[in-house]
């Protein structure tokens, strides 16, 4: 049922990687993604892969958990590999049968592209595995805050995301409750074709929306009675603070990114 769903991938651990500042982690991930696109040899990928395993080790996450995140992307990866193996031509002919042939350039680019995709996904999933959505939201607010000057309401955006994060479990539970109540009255949410299934959701949607918007009303009232007046000057319970190890991490990544771009 809906209540058992886990949202996001975050795994809470007591590790140095988890303790790094969310802003630094976002910047680091962006830097590494850019660096990855400058690499055109497998030596560079080797460096990256080694680095990923060091991070996994430091973050105290099991490798299996990280690899499990790759599962939904497997079809895409396989497709990319095969399309190159069969359609990219050049170099030695390794194998041929009638009009089909596999040539060395195809195998090389296929494996190369797939390695890049896999490393990219591993890296970005490391960010979401080790940083909670709430921390990431704060991080995004700080990173976007220079844009406040041109009118981008960064604090309001992060407030809305924080509200959303707060209400996801509540509304999941509510949806679950309404579904059970309607099923007890004979509603069927599981069978039929697309239109029938959509229709069967109406007895869920209407009460869910009405109660959700009522909650929003209450929340707005509660915020205003506590003198919430928008982002400017709002203080927070947990301030993001840079520590010395944040700068060390950033330094290591900059060195790595510069080094690999030579390969």
């Amino acid at each position: 049922m809906l209540k058992d769903i886990t949202i996001g991938q975050y795994l809470a651990r007591d590790s140095i990687i988890h303790a790094l500042d969310a802003r630094i982690k976002i910047i680091i991930t962006t830097l590494l993604i850019i660096a990855l696109f400058t690499i055109d040899s497998f030596v560079g990928f080797g460096f990256f892969l080694a680095f990923i395993f060091v991070i996994i080790f430091l973050a105290k996450i099991s490798v299996a958990k990280v690899l499990r995140g790759l599962k939904p992307i497997l079809i895409l990866v396989l497709f990319t590999l095969l399309i190159h193996v069969f359609l990219t031509k050049g170099g030695q002919v390794l194998w041929s049968w009638k009009f089909i042939s596999i040539e060395s350039a195809g195998v090389y680019t296929g494996v190369f592209m797939v390695s890049r995709i896999l490393i990219l996904i591993l890296f970005t999933s490391l960010l979401t595995l080790t940083t909670s959505p709430l921390q990431l939201t704060d991080g995004i607010e700080y990173i976007l805050s220079p844009l406040k000057k041109v009118g981008v309401p960064a604090s309001e955006l992060s407030m809305m995301m924080t509200i959303a994060l707060r209400f996801i479990p509540t509304l999941l539970e509510e949806a679950d409750k309404i579904m059970k109540a309607q099923q007890a009255r004979g509603a069927d949410f599981e069978s039929g074709n697309l239109i029938q299934r959509a229709k069967s959701l109406i007895p869920l949607l209407v009460p869910l929306f009405i109660s959700a918007f009522r909650r929003a009303d209450d929340l707005a009232l509660a915020m205003e009675s506590r003198c919430y007046r928008g982002g400017e000057g709002r203080t927070r319970l947990h301030e993001l603070k840079y520590e010395y190890y944040d700068f060390i991490a950033l330094l290591i990544v900059v060195i790595l990114a510069v080094t690999v771009s030579f390969f």
Binding site: E156, M160, I163, A164, L171, F209, A216
Partner: peptide, 17 residues
């Protein structure tokens, strides 16, 4: 407005659900 923010926040949560 605060009300609009609260509504957007809750609506986004609904979208996730």
């Amino acid at each position: 407005s605060t009300r609009m923010m609260a509504e957007i926040g809750v609506a986004v949560a609904l979208a996730v659900v």
